[in-house]
Nucleic acid binder design. Structure first.
Length: 577
RNA sequence: CGGGGCGUAGCGUAGCCUGGCUAGCGCGCCUGGAUCGGGACCAGGAGGUCGCGAGUUCGAAUCUCGCCGCCCCGACCA
């Protein structure tokens, strides 16, 4: 590729619309341009990098035995109604109407389509297992698109769906995708950690997310330095024992009954922990009110803990819930937040965190503004429907496996593997006949990679104050030849042309900066876009019979011009290992 | 959806509070010159519905109202 014939509109200044480094670089390096919020055009360099990532994904999916297909982005609502997700997913749909006013949806994901396909085509256990994948545009009406490609309305995703006869077989498919993902991100030059992920409403044990550690990530990953444990904070547990466990239990008969005491103006755990009350946070019960299908539900955790809404979703079996409004709370409990408690509450389901189990002599709100209760014993005074892990793990707590301190880091989710079970195959009748001729639902798995997000994650991870430094595997061009004099009759340019030809013939993705620009401009641009290797050719060094080799992340060296091509080829072979 | 900020040429911005004649600057772009190893230099030039619409006013980029768009935070933590 000749630079003068390509289109790489680099920007000297940072567009005001971009906040984070990778987004700024996407724009500055001329990789993308915005059409509207969350909608981007890929320019030649951006598209080339994207295609390289896609190709790596394709190769690894094929190697894992998955079959590439392409499904429609425009989908009939009926299949979503059949799966039951038409309502629950309605928030993310972009909808369209045809000339007959019939409604269609732009696919935010493809479980319904692929399962419909399987339902029609798969009849026998002999056809299984099968794993279908596609690389395709998804449409999601995000609440707030942001950070360029990181969270967009329209984005490219690789999604794969496996169909198996049994749970065990499905686990094999799952493992095979997991392994493929590890290879994919490794080949993309990305440090992506598999972490245990929340399985949400669908439940089940098997779900991992692939996370790229980054300050701008939208997820929190809990992990232990030595690697034995890593989980999304939504799912994470720790080896911490309840602070109440160390307090000796007594027979409830010998304990005083709970009593009310005045706490004027006290609305927070912290206030109650200070003088004159001095009730330690871990001796308080925090009472939170949520609304599920217009009905209240109470969640209790220790005063020092935070409720984990993902865990709440797991308990409730739905993500359709919300925190209650103060007015609603007052209607149900007779007090506003700050004085809430569960003592004496009988009509409302109460879930309590495991740490509260058996708790005695605790303090909680009295459901009367300005009053709290003390000497509360959970078993005796509160009608707990069930105990569950509801709390959010905090940094420094012991790892559940090794006991070493846990750390928390923000990260970008680039991939997710998920064992689905039979939810969709049952709803959409994707069944097969087993050896006994009995009809069985396929056991499914789904596996996604945000291709466009992966591109940005690479940039977020591979950048310095000059610009991007692409890993060789995903660089839009691998070698940039930079003649410092662009006049075609010059020896410098002829040398550049010769390199260009030799490297192109050797199959190297090479760009020749044949623009009539001053050297400084060429250097800056090539560093901004981030080609892994630059060959600088100037008349000074050429007089000495030498050219300059400058890896984007290495030191400049001069070598004889007739050794340059071999040197670069060797360097690339080395870098590609 | 709630809160905050912003909208002036392709990009970055000044001017707005305190209304006033041809809306200024840098980058980029075009022409010419000179230069040719780190976004250098000189001269000339093109490019603007000041987001859109209403209103106030003799007069609006500037004040008021409405709308649209963009960015950030939030939409849990009592």
């Amino acid at each position: 590729m000749r630079w003068s014939q390509s289109f790489a509109p680099t920007l000297k200044e940072t567009p005001a619309e971009a906040e984070i480094a990778s987004h700024q670089l996407l724009l500055r390096a001329g990789l993308i341009r915005k059409l509207a919020g969350g909608l981007y055009t890929f320019l030649p360099m951006g598209l080339k990098a994207l295609q390289k990532i896609s190709q790596i994904i394709r190769e690894e999916m094929n190697r894992a035995g998955a079959l590439e297909i392409l499904m429609p982005a425009l989908q009939p609502p009926e299949i979503w109604k059949e799966s039951g997700r038409y309502e629950t997913a309605s928030d993310v749909f972009f909808k369209a109407k045809d000339r007959a006013q019939r409604e269609w949806v732009l696919g935010p994901t493809h479980e319904e389509v692929v399962t419909t396909l399987a339902a029609g085509e798969i009849n026998s256990y002999r056809q299984l297992p099968k794993n279908f994948y596609q690389i395709q545009t998804k449409f999601r009406d995000e609440i707030r698109p942001r950070f360029g490609l990181m969270r967009a309305r329209e984005f490219i995703m690789k999604d794969a769906y496996s169909f198996d006869t049994t749970d065990e077989a499905a686990q094999t498919s799952y493992q095979s995708m997991f392994d493929a993902y590890v290879r994919i991100f490794e080949r993309c030059g990305l440090r992506a950690l598999p972490v245990e992920a929340d399985t949400g409403v669908i439940g089940g044990k098997f779900s991992h997310e692939f996370m790229v550690p980054a300050e701008v990530g939208e997820n929190d990953v809990v992990y232990v330095e030595t690697g034995e444990y890593a989980a999304n904070v939504e799912k994470a547990t720790s080896g911490l024992k309840s602070p109440l466990a160390s307090i000796p239990k007594e027979g409830t008969e010998s304990l005083p009954a709970f009593e009310s005491f005045e706490t004027p103006g006290v609305k927070t755990i912290e206030q109650l922990s200070k003088a004159p009350f001095e009730v330690e946070a871990h001796r308080q019960i925090k009472t939170l009110v949520y609304v599920v299908e217009d009905q209240p539900v109470l969640f209790l955790v220790l005063g020092c803990d935070q409720l984990n809404e993902s865990k709440v979703a797991g308990i409730l079996g739905t993500s359709q819930f919300r925190p209650a409004e103060p007015k609603e709370i007052h209607g149900w409990l007779g007090a506003y937040p700050g004085s809430l408690g569960a003592v004496g509450v009988e009509e409302i389901p109460i879930y309590a965190d495991l740490f509260l189990e058996g708790g005695q002599d605790l303090v909680t709100g009295a459901n009367k503004d300005g009053y709290h209760l003390r000497h509360v014993c959970i078993d005796r005074d509160i009608l707990v429907k069930s105990y569950a892990d509801l709390r959010t793990v905090q940094a420094g707590e012991p790892c559940p496996i090794t006991g070493k301190p846990l750390q928390i880091q923000t990260a970008i989710e680039v991939g997710h593997v998920f064992k689905l079970g039979t939810k969709y195959s049952e709803a959409l009748q994707a069944q097969y006949l087993d050896e006994q001729g009995k009809s069985q639902p396929c056991v499914m798995g789904c596996y996604g990679i945000g291709v466009t997000r992966t591109l940005q994650a690479v940039i977020e991870q591979c950048r310095d104050d000059q610009g991007i430094y692409w890993p060789v595997s995903v660089a839009p061009c691998v070698v940039c030849i930079t003649p410092l004099i662009s006049k075609s009759e010059s020896e410098v340019m002829q040398c550049a042309e010769s390199f260009y030809q030799q490297l192109s013939e050797a199959g190297v993705d090479v760009i020749l900066d044949d623009r009539d620009e001053r050297p400084g401009v060429k250097f800056k641009d090539s560093e901004l876009i981030g080609f892994p290797m630059r060959i600088g050719i100037g008349d000074r060094s050429l007089k000495e019979g030498e050219v300059e080799i400058k890896p984007r992340k290495g030191d400049l060296i001069k070598i004889p011009r007739d050794q340059a091509v071999d040197y670069v080829l060797n360097w690339l072979a080395e870098a590609s290992k």
